Simulated assay, not measured.
Amino acid sequence: MADFTETSGRQAERHDGTNGRAVPGESASPWGLRSSNHRQRKKLVLHMDVNNTVVVSDTVTGQGTVAALDGFLTTSTWGKMTRHGKWEWLSDSPSLLPPCKDAVRYSVQFGRIPGFTSGAGRRFRGVLDEHLDQLRWPEGVEEDSELSVKGEDGRLYHWILPSFFQLLKDLVQEGWEFAILFRTFGTDLPRVLRAVHRALNEGAHPLFPDLPDLKINVNMTPGKIRCSKKGIVLSRAEDRVSSRDGERGLYQYFSSVQGLGGFQDHFDWWASNTFSIRGGKPLWVDPFDQSVQHIFIDDNMRQDDEDTIVQPRIFLDPGGNDTRVACTSELYDITLVQNDLLRAISDLNYFTERVNICLENYERNLQQGAG
């Protein structure tokens, strides 16, 4: 069976001049979720971070829309220190991956300094302004207490990215069986669930008034995942599952969920493990199970395991309980997606595209393993 030892990292491209953009409210995404008959039977379980993934803010750090986007730019701009101790920029364009071998993220060298684009990163001010404009709440549409948010600059913005709602439409339209679980360290999970419930049940979103037609159920009860040296415990309402009873039970729980819901992960555990993969949000992956595929999307996903946020645990045998912790690079763009917040803002089809890439790379790895 596949051991997920190689990542193709294949990037999808469009050649029709649209660069993946779509018009909100269209009956179909120009990108679309491709599927074949055998894939159509697979269930997708998408684990999605909240802050700086589907929401441009960060309750952990207390950042609003403008500050959060400004802070994201410190994590996606690159340079290096010269021999004379001076910072030298190596690229004028933000990117998730380094432009060259010895490039260092600004945030790694100096931290997420407030007011980045007003100071050291002023060359990226245009990028900030452009994406804030794309994030603006539609003119002439009344403020919505759940779906819109007022930025530090006094302007109204989308609170949840429109590309997230486009993903929901694409999944339903293509007939996928799926579930989406928000996985956040923050405290805003109840508000996220309320906002999504409002859009999906009341048709309150100005760009997607037909969302109630999707008939997606939202579980409004936030769950918790707590980790310790003794194991991992998941709880939500009356549900309680522990790794002490075997890790297979946690995998089966996540694989069986329906609709939308969410869990607050264990920030203190991640911090106590120096913000590394050792304390990351747990994700179970079973390469022997062809009936379900789990995908985790998070802006803090890194190929450096000493600086990443998800801990992928791969089962070693069919139906077994034993797992190993995989390196992020092993599963990058297969089950782990490093969210590009700039593209998630500017490209309505971004999340759909990333899911497609993971589906194709996952399938390719299974075929290679079988061979």
Score class of each variant (00 low, 15 high):
residue 13 E to W: 14
residue 14 R to E: 13
residue 18 T to A: 11
residue 18 T to P: 02
residue 29 S to H: 10
residue 31 W to E: 05
residue 36 S to I: 04
residue 38 H to L: 06
residue 39 R to C: 00
residue 43 K to T: 03
residue 43 K to F: 01
residue 43 K to D: 07
residue 48 M to L: 14
residue 50 V to A: 12
residue 65 T to M: 03
residue 67 A to P: 00
residue 68 A to P: 02
residue 69 L to S: 09
residue 73 L to T: 01
residue 73 L to Q: 08
residue 73 L to I: 10
residue 77 T to D: 08
residue 82 T to C: 00
residue 95 S to Y: 03
residue 97 L to S: 14
residue 98 P to C: 06
residue 103 A to P: 11
residue 109 Q to F: 00
residue 112 R to T: 15
residue 114 P to C: 01
residue 117 T to Q: 08
residue 117 T to C: 13
residue 119 G to K: 13
residue 120 A to Y: 03
residue 123 R to P: 02
residue 123 R to F: 10
residue 125 R to M: 09
residue 129 D to S: 13
residue 130 E to M: 15
residue 133 D to P: 01
residue 142 E to F: 01
residue 143 E to R: 10
residue 143 E to D: 12
residue 143 E to F: 15
residue 143 E to C: 10
residue 147 L to G: 10
residue 147 L to I: 13
residue 151 G to I: 01
residue 154 G to T: 01
residue 156 L to I: 12
residue 158 H to P: 05
residue 158 H to Y: 12
residue 159 W to D: 03
residue 160 I to H: 04
residue 163 S to N: 10
residue 165 F to G: 11
residue 166 Q to C: 13
residue 167 L to F: 09
residue 168 L to I: 11
residue 172 V to H: 12
residue 173 Q to K: 15
residue 176 W to A: 10
residue 183 R to Y: 05
residue 189 L to G: 07
residue 195 A to S: 11
residue 197 H to C: 00
residue 198 R to W: 06
residue 201 N to P: 01
residue 203 G to W: 04
residue 208 F to L: 12
residue 212 P to Q: 04
residue 217 N to K: 11
residue 217 N to L: 09
residue 225 I to R: 05
residue 235 S to Q: 03
residue 245 D to W: 02
residue 250 L to H: 05
residue 255 S to D: 00
residue 256 S to L: 06
residue 262 G to Q: 09
residue 262 G to C: 10
residue 269 W to S: 05
residue 272 S to K: 14
residue 278 R to F: 14
residue 280 G to N: 14
residue 281 K to L: 09
residue 287 P to A: 01
residue 291 S to K: 00
residue 292 V to L: 01
residue 294 H to W: 00
residue 295 I to Y: 06
residue 298 D to R: 11
residue 298 D to K: 08
residue 301 M to P: 06
residue 302 R to F: 13
residue 306 E to M: 15
residue 306 E to I: 12
residue 308 T to L: 09
residue 312 P to I: 12
residue 327 C to I: 08
residue 334 I to M: 05
residue 334 I to G: 00
residue 334 I to T: 05
residue 335 T to Q: 08
residue 335 T to M: 04
residue 337 V to Y: 04
residue 339 N to E: 15
residue 341 L to Q: 07
residue 342 L to A: 10
residue 351 F to N: 13
residue 353 E to D: 09
residue 356 N to Q: 12
residue 357 I to Q: 14
residue 358 C to A: 10
residue 360 E to K: 03
residue 363 E to C: 01
residue 368 Q to N: 06
residue 371 G to P: 07
